[in-house]
């Protein structure tokens, strides 16, 4: 395993009075691609939201360390500034704020430096091209009137522009046609370097086709019940979660 980037230990968290994660533990090292599998309602999105610091979720126990910092002590924007990124399952629509405006503001917030207009534009144009998005996309209001697929591609565009150390991708491939899955997968591959990492929630193996997966975790009822190599993806793909559910009783 590469140098540790994210370490989750015994995480218990939930919403209101309902505990969803019952002691989840997970480690991700630099340069790694991890996949998080699990049936609906097992707590995958909760885990990502807790890592990112969604205010609705309450952490009861456990620790999350990210690149040397105690993540749970930091507000969401500070987590992002330290290199965390979440690709949302259902990205919010922000009327009146263009994709470019948001990206420029975010880039400036994360780097602490004013982005040079020309260099930024050039970089944005390159990222748009990678995802086969029209140049005028940058001038559209963020996610407003976007199709599901367009929203997902815009999430990956943000990933490419913000260059986090760890990307959490929450079903970025769901609802996409084959070609769009391919584009998203290619975008993630373009993002990956030996210095960064990603954790991917998915229900289909398509997004993984152009990625080299290092570890796979199965989350069930708020626990990681098994971690293993990429072969776990195929096993779940072929047989579902029955084996894990039986073992849980």
């Amino acid at each position: 395993m590469g140098e540790e980037l994210l370490t989750i230990r015994g995480l218990r968290a939930g919403v209101d009075d309902k505990e969803i994660l019952h002691g989840a533990s997970l480690s991700i090292g630099k340069g790694e691609t991890h996949v998080l599998l699990g049936p609906n309602g097992s707590g995958k999105t909760t885990l990502m939201n807790v890592i990112m610091g969604h205010p609705r979720y309450e952490v009861r126990e456990g620790t999350v360390r990210f690149d040397g910092a105690d993540l749970l002590a930091l507000p969401t924007h500070e987590r992002a500034r330290r290199g965390l990124f979440l690709s949302f399952q259902t990205p919010e629509e922000i009327p009146g704020v263009t994709v470019e405006n948001m990206l420029r503001t975010a880039r400036q917030a994360i780097t602490g430096k004013k982005a040079g207009v020309l260099a930024f534009r050039k970089e944005l144009a390159a990222a748009l091209a990678t995802l086969q998005m029209d140049a005028d996309w940058a001038g559209r209001y963020l996610n407003v009137g976007f199709s599901g697929g367009e929203k997902k591609r815009t999430e990956i565009l943000q990933l490419l522009m913000l260059k986090p150390k760890l990307a959490l991708l929450d079903e970025t491939d769901s609802g996409l046609d084959v070609d769009a899955v391919h584009l998203v997968s290619g975008g993630v591959r373009a993002f990956r370097t030996p210095e960064n990492a990603c954790l991917i929630i998915t229900h289909n193996a398509g997004i993984l086709s152009s990625l080299s997966v290092d570890r796979v975790h199965v989350l069930l009822h708020g626990h990681i019940v098994q971690s293993g190599g990429p072969e776990l993806v195929d096993e779940v793909g072929a047989h579902g979660y029955a084996r894990f559910l039986e073992a849980e009783g």
């Binding site: 969401t76 990124f85 979440l86 990205p91 919010e92 922000i94 009146g96 704020v97 917030a109 994360i110």
Partner: peptide
């Protein structure tokens, strides 16, 4: 939450949303 997850402070996120609204 969406905007703060991009590194933008909460107050600025609010201001962005209000500016965008008008």
């Amino acid at each position: 939450f969406y905007l703060t997850s991009r590194g933008i402070r909460e107050e600025e996120a609010r201001a962005m949303i209000v500016r965008g609204f008008v």
